[in-house]
Structure formats: C-alpha cells, structure tokens
Design a protein around this nucleic acid. Structure first.
Lengths: 333, 333
DNA sequence: TTGTACGCGTTATCAA
DNA sequence: TTGATAACGCGTACAA
C-alpha cells in the first residue's frame, strides 16, 4: 500500500498478488475466454484491492488501435463546427470512441500538418477543412486514411458528408421568388470556402429557374459583425431582399437595420441559413433554412465507422435542410 | 514499396534499410544525442524514402505520457463550455498538447465514469462538472490526478479556476441600485449547479449592501427558451428589473418582451451575464457582464501544466468580469 | 482451463 | 559516436 500509491499497479502486480499468470488476469478483464469461477473471484478481488486499472496506452499498442478519432476544424468558435463536434462526439461515444479535437484557428496553411499529426494519435480522421488547398488535401488523403471529409465535395473515393447548401439556397430563393422579389442581394462568405461555392451554385440555379430575377453577389464574411458592417451597402443597393451567407450574418444585419429604423420585412426581406438557436429570438424572428447540423456530425461518424470496419466508401451523403418561415420575409416592396 | 504501402514502416525498417541500429534512428529523430553527420543524412533519406512516421502509440508507452489532456463537459451545446474548450485547446496546443473531449450530455450520474475513463487515456484532466455530487467528485479527485477543476470551488488542494459569478452579480446589482431599482427579480439556473450557488451568494451580498433592495429568487433554467417561457411571470411580479442567470435567459426574455410590446428599459430593465457575441445584437442591446470565457480555458490549462510539471497547486484562480452597459437597463420606472 | 513466451514500436541504459 | 538490450504494459498464439 505504501508504494502502490506512488506507482500504479500493473497487470503483473495483480497476477503476482493473486497467484495467477498475467494471461489469466487479462482474460478475466476482457472476458474473452472462459476462466474458472474461483479464479475469477480471486482476481477481481485483487484488482479491487490494488485499484488496478489497465493502461490504455499499453492496450493501444498491443491492440493496434486507440478507439479514438481526430476531429480537425478551422474554428471552434463557429456554431457550425461546434454542432459537428457535438454530433460526432455523441455518436462516436455510442461506439466506444472518443474524439480528439484540433483547432487550426482559421490558418489553412497549418491544416495539413494538424490533420496528419492528429491522425497519427488516432484510428481515423474527421476533417473539416473548407479552405485547405487541393494539393495539401491530396496529401492528407494519401496519408491520413481512414478519414471522412466534412462539408467539402472531393472527387475521390473517400467517405464524405456535406450540408447541401446549394439546395438550401434554392429553397430560400424560391421562397423569395414567391413573394415577388426580383432584385436580390447575396451576402457571401469567404470566396475560397467550399460551402460558399456550393451556395453560389444555388444562386446560379435560382437565376436560371426564375427568369427576371437578378441576384447581386457580394463577399462580406461569415460573422455577426460582417452582417452589421455591410448594412449601409445593402440599403444603397436597391435590393428588396437579402440572402445572407448564414444566420450570423443575417442577425448582424437585422440588428443594425433595427437600430436604423428600417422596416423588415416592409422595406427589406432578410433570410439566413442554418437555423441556429438564436434565429428564433432575433427581431424580427428570422426566416431561414433549418439544417440539422448535429446530423452532419452523426453522419460523419457513421461513415467513419464504416471505413474503420474496412467497408468501401459509399455515396457521398448530402444532408438537406428545410425552409422555416418566420417574420423577416414578406412581399416585395 | 509493394508492401510498404500496406504495412506502415517501423523504426526497425528504417534502421535495417539504412544499415544502422534502431537507437541511431531514434537519436536522429529526437536530436537528443549527437550523431555523425553522414549517418544523419543517410537516415533522413531513408525516412523520407520509406515515409516513416513514428508511432505515437509506441512513444506514449515508452515515454509514459501521451501529451494529451482530457476535457469533460456537461454539454457541448453550451456556449460557456464551448469557450472553455476553445481556450483550453489553443493554450494546450502551444505546449504541444491536444485535447480529448467528452460530453456527458447533462447526465451527472455518468460524469464520474466519463471523467475517470477519459483521464486514463490522457496525462491529465480538465473537469467541468457543476452538478456532480460530492462523493463522486471526491472519488474523481482521488483517481484522476493531475487535474484542474473548472467552475466549481472545492475544498481541497487541487488546481481550480472559476468564473467569479458572485462578483459578476454584485456588479449588475450595484448598477441596478444606482439606477434606483429596489424590486428586482433574479432568474436563476439549476439550483444544484455550482455556478448558480455562486450567483446566489452575490445576490445575498447585494441585499446586504443595498438596504431596501429586495431580490426575489426564481429557478427557471439556463436557456433561451427558459427566458422566453418565464416572461409572463416576470411581468406579473411587479419587479422593475431582472437579473438573468446568463445572456441566453436574458435574450430569450428580451425577445418575448419585444413581441409583447413591453418597453425595455422603460418599464423593465434586464441584465445578463457572460457577454456572449449575441448580446451586442439583441433588441435592445443587452447590458451584461463581460466574462472572458476563453481565459477560463487558458487559465485552466496553465494550472494543469503546472500540475503536470509536479508543482503544488497554488491559489484557486478567480476570473473576474466587468460590467458592459448597453441599452437594456435604465432608471427604475 | 491455465501458463509460457512473444510481439506491439518506441525510448533509454550501458558497454564498446 | 554507435549498437545491443532492456524496459514500457498489455494481448494472445501456442503448448501444456
């Protein structure tokens, strides 16, 4: 007891103390093979007495797996990645896996290194890297399998899940078209981001499907502040409706419009994308597309589990949202 | 090359291929000891050719550490824990540590197990468990060191950091007192939660310091919806000001008040705590206490690093916020 | 059913 | 400076 407190008991200590071999202790622990009942009792008593806990590290080496999966994200402050993390963490926990998280702090140049390093400590990788360049991505694809790509369509036989933002944009564009809007402003996110490109394709679709509709594209960012700061430009644009990159941009814009006394949706309609919790509490309550972000994490884990089991990657999973009409949209002025 | 693709190269493969011992390869990798320049070059060339990457798992076992720290939180959906996660992840990364995250999904009964399990895979533990009962906590304290306790004062020589919510409440109470408010309503969080108890002590302080001030205490929860749902009760209470458990509750309340056409701060003043990003974008903009939540994660890691280095735990760290006056508070009606 | 012996991939010790 | 060799703690064929 005097030294057991200092050095953690090993399986060898248990074996010696119980008068059996280490193999037997191991068997009792893992229940793989059948062991004599009397021995089981003795070993378990010894384990309890010594407070023995198997070393995860040693098991990892011996078994060749860690039951851990790496998640790499550009920014843990972004609600989207928070939702993915939550969904993936909970889904993985169901299967006895834990999640190691790495935040690249919006620096695409370190993403490759971060992804490969994190992957080395784990059995697999969940990669959210919307801005990583294609060469780096190819290198990661080569070194870090098994992995699942999140929110970035890649032309390779690798598991991938993504939010269908193209579809989401079409939903809001159709909604605005139905309300008679023809001059629309799209406040886009980072031009290089994969999910912005997806939204832009939705914008293209909308213009094609709704003759006479003209959608002006702007790059403003993806934050509350970005929405706030672009407000004056929006008012000068002459548009009757705004499609924001996401709810953050939309809420930032709404807040500023409210300060300026601009009627929404009387003078201007505003729609967001994501349906974050705050969307229901903005003024006016935000019309947006509800995208099940947790599902993205859940689906990503499901794909990864398949890859870990040696299954070939199936079709890319596209998670679709649905329009949620609230009070920030109305007939065109 | 044909089989190198299937089985990852080990340090032994490199040694054989370069015609040196494994020890030498290890030395050039870690730069511990000085090695002949010619050998260094040969080994490095071989490493590149074989695309050798050391096994983290084997290093972990050999070195007796994983350079990984476990973070246990009750809910990854809560902005507070997201901030702690972000702060801790970034701070730990500076020191070459990664963070393994476990979400107990608001089930205090699994927190003990989750904490101990997560800790076994890591070198240390960052524990956020505001509702865990004292017995379980004592057990965790015994088994899971080194660790740092976050947002829960415990009477033990263990590193701990916490947001000083008692101080925060005093700040808002003083502010309201200065505006002439005497009948105040406190919308509290879960009664068993440690940080709610801290706030209640701040409420007690305020009543003591401001004779004539009466603060009614209610337990409503900690979410946007909780704030929304309690609105009618608030209006019937006759209070001229509300201290919300956090910004989420405050914003939920403000949103509903706005829908009902209640003048804020004309008829009712509302203050929150936390200063989450959305606080600047509510209507009206929320007066609150800015608490540097990232700092909590950073400080928690700093404590843990000390503990990992064998230092004795110092004083508990209390992170304090400051009042941010916006437009949701005004003179008492 | 149990024990022996080896392998997992690395770092560290000690001679040479 | 280099190379055997022994840890690190566990799982598991294989033999008994």
């Amino acid at each position: 007891m005097t030294e057991a407190d200092h050095r953690r008991a090993t399986i060898g200590d248990v074996a010696r103390s119980a008068g059996v071999s280490r193999a037997t202790v191991s068997r009792v622990l893992n229940g793989r093979s059948t062991v004599d009942a009397a021995l089981v009792a003795r070993v378990e008593a010894t384990i309890a007495a010594l407070e023995y806990r198997p070393s995860e590290t040693a098991r990892n080496l011996s078994l060749g797996r860690t039951n851990t999966v790496a998640l790499v994200v550009p920014d843990l402050g972004n609600p989207m990645f928070q939702a993915i993390l939550r969904g993936a963490t909970r889904a993985a926990a169901e299967d006895g896996f834990q999640v190691l998280v790495a935040d690249t702090q919006e620096r695409p140049e370190v993403e490759k290194r971060a992804a490969i390093d994190a992957r080395r400590r784990c059995d697999a990788l969940l990669l959210c890297a919307p801005r990583m360049n294609d060469d780096d991505l190819a290198e990661v694809l080569r070194q870090a399998r098994p992995l699942t790509i999140v929110n970035r369509a890649v032309d390779d036989a690798v598991p991938q899940v993504a939010m269908d933002y193209r579809h989401a944009i079409r939903l809001v564009a159709d909604h605005l078209a139905g309300l008679g809007h023809r001059r629309i402003l799209y406040l886009g996110g980072p031009i290089t981001s994969a999910s912005n490109q997806l939204r832009l394709r939705g914008i293209d679709d909308a213009e094609r499907e709704h003759p006479g509709m003209v959608i002006e594209r702007r790059e403003v960012g993806s934050s509350l502040d970005a929405g706030w700061e672009v407000t004056d430009d929006v008012l000068e644009s002459g548009a009757t409706a705004v499609i924001a990159y996401n709810d953050l941009v939309a809420i930032g814009l709404l807040s500023r419009l409210d300060d300026l006394g601009v009627a929404v949706p009387g003078r201007l309609s505003v729609v967001g994308v994501d349906d974050i919790p705050f969307a229901r509490f903005s003024r006016p309550h935000l019309t947006t597309v509800s995208v099940p972000q947790d599902e993205l994490g859940t689906a990503a884990w499901a794909q990864l589990r398949g890859a870990l089991a040696g299954e070939a990657p199936g079709e890319a999973v596209w998670v679709q949202g649905r329009l949620v009409e609230r009070h920030s949209t109305g007939p065109a002025a």
